[in-house]
Design a protein around this nucleic acid. Structure first.
Length: 791
DNA sequence: ATTCGCAAAGTTTTT
DNA sequence: CTTTGCGAAT
């Protein structure tokens, strides 16, 4: 019977897939291009192992998101019911491991996982305690450095500051203090979850060996996105027993910025010399025309192993590239197209995805989709859990679960107001630091603190008693605990006190939290409880909340889209500075990562794909001409459909472009789903020619060019456009920062005419000190002001 | 202790 | 142009 099952499991797989499934032992590297049936291979491989007689509890599968893990578990349960394979994210895996061995790294099992906001608060305390002047290194910078160290697997005792390095000198003071505060709070940050586990295994050889044996078979998905700490963890758990299979695609490595090390996958063959390598190159997802676009784009990366994308799928429709006058047009047209396709019955809402580089780009689309009555879901971050009211309630739960959680203490001690203010808090903090105890302990002993008056101490003790009382009510279910907290603190009443609409909405969010907790209780009858609930709340990711079955248009970042697929994909905002992001230009490796990001975006599409960019983009207060993304030059434009660039020709000046923009007739949204396209080929369109506007990166950025707009026929403009025009006109004769010099007469909207008497700063921070006859001297940052020449 | 007002900074991407 | 954070005032 077992043999028959094994046969069934490899039936219908291609050669590469089959060989990956059948090689259950020893190190295995699966290079899997997009849409190559990777998840299928992984699940079938695990089922195959189980069918072979390998105990399922010896198998661990590490995935990138919880969603991917759920998906895997579901599929696996169909192939192999009742199996005990552990599937989950690295962070969850480590979290579980740490709960068990917390004491070995100086924690208690009920430790708290701090999110970024929480860790930042701790960091600020650490910086203050270390008496570091944050003049030239911001707290964020320092935090990033610590995070980078941790991602590199450098724990405190392995950190050796380089002599003469200023940042290292700061880190040598802040890093230890930060870790000390975390430990006192019995808390970890995200990076610590991994790092503590690495330390745990490194420092306890016999434990390491037993776990190595216990997790006999390991699989790691998205291996190209693992960082050094994760790499070390994997190596530590696959030393004696090397039944390790990793899957990944170097072309989809998009997390370098958070420490992902692309050489982890490129060097896998060196790390495990006896490795077998399987390549899954056939794509089952996309049309030929989409794949050619993806292929040609990624060919431009230098640091890469060549790989071909092949598919037996149809040719499909040509990929579209559209230039819109403004983001409003972009959003309106795309929403219209989607609405029309749905209306005509060609598509469902859930067939569409709108992908972008940064989260804020979703706003315009939310607006237009709502107007068109198209249902949508936006995946952005842990937005729900970041709300003040939610964080407040969760903080109470954290404090109940882990009374030493000082960040939670500081958050809720005066919410609702208990007349325990900033000064009192500072006194408690000092006491807690001097005695190396948590805030809660300090509060308990507040009568010992001379500087705290009796009356205040009484209020503090009342709070301590409140929490003590609540902690007795903590039981196996979460929902009743939240209800007790709300009841005992009067939080909800405090929230709705002012009767405002906003307050009402917030109360609604709190209610939603209660419902979510209830659901959690129902779904986790065995393995629930406060600790697990809080762990889950801390480790949810963007895509985890994505509802793949519900009928919504999906909007998310290209990062979040990894691993997903949609029939129709819109990749929007393809402008230099957005993609590639302005913070990566100038660094070749980072630009290559941006290119991979677009590659990921493209390869999400099954049947239809549209790129778009805008000629103007609203940034920092007003509209600026936007340069097309350099990646657009790298696509096979001769086979794509190009819209909206009709007026652009090689050799245009900025003014010419502006005139073209003003007379653009793309305002009436073209209907792509239906009309025969006006096919403007590359030879006709300026963006192909390398006209200096688009291709010559040596040129000054557009933001520095004159932004003069010629008025166009008002009768043809919508209200939004008029508003936009107005704004542009306001900026029309705006003084260019580099034209400003001492002695110049300038005019300010509010202060009138004045004379520049001094200039300070460089780049965007150039500031002029200007003497206005009626207002005296004013310091004005040129990049943000509306200075103009008088007259 | 809270509230108000002004100034500076700012927009990646996420476990 | 917004938001956030800090400082001063009540």
């Amino acid at each position: 019977m077992a043999v028959e099952t094994q046969q069934e499991l490899i039936h219908g797989l291609n050669d590469g897939q089959r060989s990956a499934v059948q090689q259950t032992d020893g190190p295995l590297l699966i290079i899997a291009g997009p849409g190559s049936g990777k998840t299928r291979v992984i699940t079938h491989r695990i089922a195959f192992m189980i069918a072979k007689g390998i105990p399922s509890w010896q198998i661990v599968a590490l995935t990138f998101t919880n969603k991917a893990a759920d998906e895997m578990r579901n599929r696996l349960n169909k192939l192999s019911p009742g199996n005990l394979t552990w599937a989950g994210t690295f962070h969850r895996f480590c979290s579980r491991l740490l709960r068990q061995y917390a004491a070995l790294v100086g924690l208690q099992e009920n430790y708290t996982i701090y999110d970024m906001g929480d860790s930042k608060k701790v960091l600020k305390h650490a910086i203050a305690n270390a008496e570091i002047d944050v003049k030239h290194f911001s707290a964020d910078k320092i935090g990033n450095q610590i995070s980078n160290l941790k991602n590199e697997g450098v724990s405190l005792e392995h950190f050796i500051p380089r002599p003469g390095n200023v940042m290292d000198k700061i880190l040598s003071k802040v890093y230890p203090e930060y870790q000390k505060l975390l430990q006192m709070a019995n808390a970890v940050d995200f990076d610590d979850l991994l790092l503590h586990c690495v330390d745990l295994l490194r420092d306890n050889p016999e434990l390491r060996e037993s776990l190595d044996l216990k997790f006999n078979y390991m699989m790691v998905d998205e291996y190209q996105d693992t960082n050094r700490a994760q790499y070390q963890l994997i190596r530590l758990l696959n030393h004696n027993v090397q039944n390790l299979a990793v899957t990944g695609d170097p072309d989809q490595s998009i997390y370098g910025w958070r420490g992902a090390n692309i050489s982890n996958i490129l060097d896998f063959e060196k790390d495990y010399p006896s490795v077998s390598v399987v390549r899954l190159e056939e794509n089952y997802r996309s049309t030929k025309s989409i794949l050619r676009v993806a292929d040609q784009l990624i060919e431009n990366n230098v640091r890469r192993k060549k790989k071909k994308l092949i598919t037996a799928n149809d040719e499909g429709k040509p990929v579209r590239l559209v230039a819109y006058p403004s983001p409003q047009d972009e959003a309106a047209d795309i929403a219209d197209s989607i609405a029309l396709a749905i209306q005509k019955g060609n598509r469902k809402a859930k067939d569409f995805a709108i992908l972008y580089r940064t989260n804020w780009l979703s706003r315009a689309f939310e607006h237009t989709l709502r107007q068109c009555g198209v249902p949508y879901q936006v995946l952005n971050g842990h937005e729900f859990y970041q709300r003040k009211e939610i964080k407040d309630v969760i903080a109470y739960l954290h404090l109940l679960n882990n009374p030493n959680d000082s960040v939670a203490f500081e958050r809720v001690v005066n919410i609702p107001s208990r007349k325990i203010g900033k000064v009192t808090l500072t006194r408690l903090q000092r006491y807690s630091r001097e005695n190396s105890i948590s805030m809660m302990e300090a509060a308990r002993n507040c009568e010992q603190i001379e500087t705290i008056k009796k009356a205040v101490g009484k209020r503090i003790l009342a709070f301590v008693e409140l929490m003590d009382g609540l902690s007795k009510e903590v039981d196996s279910e979460v929902e009743p605990v939240i209800r007790s907290v709300l009841a005992a603190t009067g939080y909800r009443e405090w929230l709705t006190d002012d009767g405002s609409e906003e307050a009402f909405e917030r109360a609604g969010n709190v209610d939603e939290l209660v419902v979510a907790a209830q659901e959690f209780d129902n779904e986790h009858p065995e393995d629930g409880g406060l600790a697990r609930y809080l762990e889950q709340a801390a480790l949810v990711s963007d895509t985890d909340v994505w509802e793949s079955d519900a009928n919504f248009v999906t909007m998310m970042t290209m990062h979040a889209a990894k691993g997903l697929e949609f029939p129709c994909v819109y990749v929007v905002g393809l402008e230099d500075g957005l993609l590639p992001h302005e913070r990566s230009v100038g660094n070749d490796d980072e630009v290559e990562e941006e290119r991979r990001l677009l590659f990921v975006g493209i390869t999400r599409a099954e049947e239809e794909l549209q790129f778009s960019r805008c000629l103007n983009r609203f940034r920092r207060g007003s509209y600026w001409p936007a340069i097309p993304s350099r990646f657009l030059m790298e696509l096979p434009r001769d086979e794509m459909e190009i819209f909206g660039a009709q007026h652009q020709q090689a050799g245009m000046t900025a003014d010419d472009l502006q005139r073209a923009i003003d007379s653009m007739d793309v305002v009436d949204a073209p209907d792509f789903s239906d009309l025969p396209a006006i096919d403007i080929h590359a030879s006709d369109a300026a963006i192909s020619v390398g006209g200096d506007l688009f291709c010559d990166q040596e040129n000054e950025p557009a933001t520095k060019k004159s932004a003069v707009k010629k008025p166009s026929m008002a009768s043809l403009m919508t209200g939004a456009e008029l508003a936009k025009q107005h704004q542009s006109n306001a900026a029309a004769d705006r003084l260019e920062p580099e034209a400003c010099e001492v002695g110049l007469e300038v005019e300010h909207v509010e202060y009138g005419v004045g004379k520049v008497i001094a200039m300070t700063g460089t780049g965007r921070k150039v500031t002029a000190t200007i003497n206005f006859p009626n207002f005296g001297n004013k310091r004005i940052c040129l990049a943000f002001s509306n200075l103009r020449l008088p007259g």
